[in-house]
Amino acid sequence: MRQRIPSLSSLRAFEAAASHLNLRRAAKDLFITESAVSRQIIALEKFLGVELFRRANKRVTLTTAGAAYSRQVRDLLGQLERNTLDLMAHQGSGGIVELACVPTLAVEWLIPRLPDFYAKHPQVVVNISAMTSIFFFDGAPYDASIHFGSDVYPGARTDLMFGEESIVVCRPDYFAGRTTVSELEVATAPRLHLASRALDWKLWIESAGIDLANPMGGARFEHHTMVISGVLAGLGVGLVPRFLVEQYLVKGQLLSPVKHFLRSPNAYYFVTPDSRPMSDAVARLREWLLEAAHDFAGA
């Protein structure tokens, strides 16, 4: 059965022209002439029976249909390129995993453990992108995600990795060299907040039984790494997940001056989409990741 699919050359010409809204620049990208780009687009419009561009005064703009189709074509060409590079790089074995991950977890926990994964699976490559919010896998370039939140994720399967406990940390010399202080001393010191978890310090203070006039006071930072850097710089005390500061505690760069901690109702999950089968590369990463998370949680 003959498939109704446009030629790849016409789709590439259309995508380039849609990106630049300029035929001359599109032609330069494709190393062909401007007239060749124009002919490819006209042939595509004739094939589809739909006008993709409006042409006026030597300028081109996308129609509503053209704008929607350009997004779809861009995604498809991008996926085709990734699949091609994957095949070329691994000669048909192994594969590439596009992983979206909470940035601080990636920097402080995942990446330091990846040498063990590569030692066991040298044929698999894991590309990591920063992602802090829920997204829909349909239309996204990711094969999997490490998500912080609940076990409910739209259109996806979730595997529990581990929960989270946030502890108070400060520089060893912050409280005049004392390694143990009271919860009240912590609560009344300059507190560094994570902007996306604005209530954490308030919850910690209330659960410690302290009545403070302004538990929300203090500087706010976008990422946990910024909070940790602020604490290392002596700007104040931080409330951060224990696993993110283990290395600083072991090296003596930071200390936790109180035992009281805050347990989060959320956890870290490995997330894969329901809408597509799991590749061999993703399955290998999942198996290794859950084992590493189990060992870490047990430790």
Rank of each mutant, 00 (worst) to 15 (best):
S10H: 11
R12G: 03
E15Y: 09
A16K: 03
A17I: 04
A18F: 07
H20N: 08
N22D: 14
L23D: 04
R24D: 10
R25F: 14
T33W: 04
V37L: 02
I42R: 15
I42P: 01
I42N: 06
A43S: 06
A43V: 01
F47R: 08
F47K: 02
E51T: 13
L52C: 09
A56S: 12
K58M: 07
K58S: 14
T61C: 03
T64E: 15
G66T: 01
Q72A: 13
V73S: 00
D75S: 12
L77N: 02
L77D: 06
Q79L: 12
E81K: 15
E81W: 03
R82N: 09
T84Q: 11
L85S: 04
G94M: 04
G95N: 05
V97Q: 03
V97R: 01
E98M: 15
L99E: 05
A100W: 04
C101R: 06
P103H: 10
T104A: 12
A106Y: 02
A106I: 06
E108C: 04
W109E: 08
W109R: 00
Y118I: 07
A119I: 01
A119N: 10
A119V: 03
K120E: 15
K120Y: 05
H121Y: 15
H121F: 15
I134H: 03
F135I: 12
F137I: 09
G139Y: 05
P141C: 08
P141M: 13
Y142V: 00
S145I: 02
I146S: 00
F148S: 00
F148N: 01
S150H: 08
V152F: 08
Y153C: 02
G155S: 04
R157H: 11
R157S: 11
T158F: 07
T158R: 14
D159T: 00
E164L: 11
S166H: 07
P172S: 08
D173A: 12
D173M: 05
Y174V: 04
F175T: 06
F175E: 08
G177L: 14
R178I: 06
V181T: 12
L184G: 02
E185R: 06
E185H: 12
P190R: 06
H193L: 07
L194M: 05
A195L: 15
S196R: 14
R197L: 13
A198S: 13
W201S: 05
K202Y: 08
K202V: 03
I205A: 10
S207C: 04
G209E: 10
G209H: 10
N214P: 01
M216E: 12
M216K: 09
R220Q: 14
F221C: 03
H223Q: 13
I228E: 05
S229C: 04
V231T: 06
L235E: 03
V237S: 13
L239Q: 02
V240H: 12
L244F: 07
L244W: 00
Q247I: 05
G252C: 09
Q253R: 11
Q253L: 13
L254A: 02
V258W: 01
V258S: 02
K259R: 13
R263M: 07
S264M: 08
P265E: 03
N266D: 14
N266A: 14
Y269A: 00
F270Y: 14
T272K: 00
R276Q: 15
M278I: 14
S279Q: 06
S279C: 04
D280H: 15
A281N: 03
A283P: 00
R284L: 06
L285Y: 10
W288L: 01
W288I: 00
E291P: 01
E291H: 11
A292P: 01
H294V: 02
